[in-house]
Nucleic acid binder design. Structure first.
Lengths: 353, 353
DNA sequence: TTGAAAGCGATACCAA
DNA sequence: TTGGTATCGCTTTCAA
């Protein structure tokens, strides 16, 4: 192990081989014609000296960094961790590095990261916004400078011109409602995230639409749109179960909070699914393992990730135009588990049309 | 929203202000003296033109990228996701970007990522190795070029000169054994990962040491060191429970597999904890939620992450020397849950010395 | 098939 | 306090 080595440059190679740096560069990059033998010699010398290209210098010259920036709320969230895992692997296979930044659901941080990544001259951006992002103008720089930017999951509204890949949250909400309805629930409620985010807005719309479709009442006192913390969820539950009209079915739009609901129910003698049926969202592994296991909506995060990379690569070798391209919507699927089991029916299920 | 903007450079600013690029640079970076008023003018013009520093150019000139490379097996693993979350946040606060690469537990990929990140001239490296990495020489380039490199969790052996932060796996193994012993188990087994990795080797050493300390037999037929897949785990369980000497206590060195054990036990009428007590490793959230909940060893991933960043920053503003610096060992703690509950004692517990 | 040289954008040394 | 300019390492025309 040699200590204190210097970085070898293309000039070192050129000098050692009595060639010009131009030729060395051509040999290294397979660009234009280089005599086979010369190329061979260059490769061997590069190996011998332990030469590695300085990506910054090349990037400066080419205005290309082979680096993609990714901004998301928090890496450790199940859905995002799965997406990132796939995205990083696929991008690496295409020769791209991945720069990751977490907004921690703070719009100011999100803005800061945009600036940083722009300064780093990333070749493209992938973004899942904070739940509170209302002003999306800090992302404008990318489009303004022809840097492809692709939003996923938590995305800007339709009036913001940008490419988007999102899960079918409306459908997710709809099938959640349908499932509770078909299981015989008639007092159906919802514990949802803040309506500032497209995902919670769409899930709520789909869910309420579903209830109406099945002629079930949407009882305002059973609907909570708020921060998805454990405390807030428990507070909501307390209110619901203190009131006269208790829910017999709940759609909780985040699995972590669905778990909280199950635990609350256990501690308070509420039987699942006999007294209360629950549908979560995301198919987090905990939902499969908890007892009773929780019915939930799978978002296929791996598919999500590969769609992301596929779309991004396509954007990168196409000139960006003003053309409106509709959002790509990825499928969702209800995964049925014990928390809505029909093996333990409600006594007098209502009739559905 | 202006379309097709160009990137403004420091020369544009200089021209617009009738100043030299040198002065503009000084104003922008707070280096050396610049007249207050001049600085003010520069800042305003920068804002007006939407100037953002080209980090590549600055990096090339300064040989500093403000970027840290991180290689780990898989982002979506609970422990690593937690560590990365903390590391990225702390590094961002210090002005560093984080480049992430997953080895997918493949040494060849790990080597490739090393090369890539070296080429990207990262200012420092953080690495958690694959379980199969035996040859660590692909990491030499970093130390050879005075690029600080810090290993964590899955680290090279003591004879490889490198800075290391690891959990107290020996202690984790020891207290797992002690806990099972004190709970009254006498046929204690282990489902462990491959012994090529320091973490599984140390956990096994601590665990066996513990059994010996408590005068309990180490029955070879109850010890499995192998790939931690669901299939392998179930195969091991089948063998153990088909044999005459069935285990009444198991240390499973990965929570995901501890979950598998619990599920297998449920399906096969093995009562937990009455017939079989289980201790897992990592304090993955699923262990708290599954029924029965699983006793496990917490590794304090957030603490791990902050130690990592703290140490790395210190390494970066110290000249790297040959001095041997012992591994930093972070604490572990046993979290007691239902899978080892002493409320349901074994009938004839043995006496411990 | 190879070489010479300009230039990517920012910085820091040396002058003024 | 500010300006001129060489330089970081690589790529790519243009010439030979």
């Amino acid at each position: 192990m040699k200590e204190n080595q210097q970085h070898h440059t293309i000039l070192d190679l050129a000098a050692a081989l009595k060639l010009s740096p131009a030729t060395v560069s051509r040999a290294l990059n397979n660009t234009s014609y280089v005599k086979k033998e010369t190329k061979q010699r260059v490769m061997e010398m590069a190996l011998k000296l332990g030469y590695r290209k300085n990506t910054m210098a090349a990037g400066l010259r080419n205005s290309k960094t082979n680096t993609i920036g990714l901004i998301l709320p928090k890496i450790s969230m199940f859905f995002h961790a799965e997406v990132v895992t796939v995205v990083q692997n696929l991008l690496h296979a295409q020769g791209y590095n991945l720069l990751i930044g977490q907004s921690n659901d703070d719009p100011a941080m999100e803005k800061e990261l945009s600036e940083t990544f722009f300064s780093s001259r990333v070749d493209a951006m992938i973004v899942s916004c904070t739940l509170q992002t209302i002003d999306f103008s800090h992302f404008d720089i990318f489009a303004d400078h022809q840097v492809p930017i692709l939003f996923y999951d938590r995305v800007p509204p339709g009036n913001y011109k940008a490419r988007v890949i999102k899960g079918d949250d409306f459908q997710g909400g709809f099938i959640a409602g349908q499932h509770l309805a078909e299981a015989g629930c008639r007092n159906i409620g919802m514990i949802n995230g803040p309506m500032t985010s497209n995902i919670y807005e769409a899930r709520a719309a789909g869910f309420m639409g579903s209830l109406q479709y099945f002629n079930l009442p949407v009882r305002k006192t059973l609907f909570y749109h708020q921060e998805l913390s454990t405390e807030q969820t428990i507070a909501a539950l307390k209110k619901m179960f203190a009131a006269k009209n208790k829910p017999d079915g709940l759609f909780v739009t985040s699995d972590r909070n669905a778990v909280t609901v199950v635990q609350y129910a256990k501690e308070n003698g509420i039987r699942i699914p006999e007294d209360l049926r629950i549908v979560g969202y995301s198919n987090d592994p905990v939902t499969a393992v908890i007892s009773p296991s929780i019915t939930t909506i799978d978002q296929f995060p791996s598919l999500f990730g590969s769609k992301l990379v596929e779309t991004l690569l396509e954007m990168m070798d196409t000139i960006q135009t003003d053309e409106y391209i509709p959002a790509v919507v990825t499928p969702v699927k209800l995964v049925e588990r014990e928390s809505t089991s029909i093996l333990k029916p409600i006594i007098n299920p209502i009739k559905l049309k």
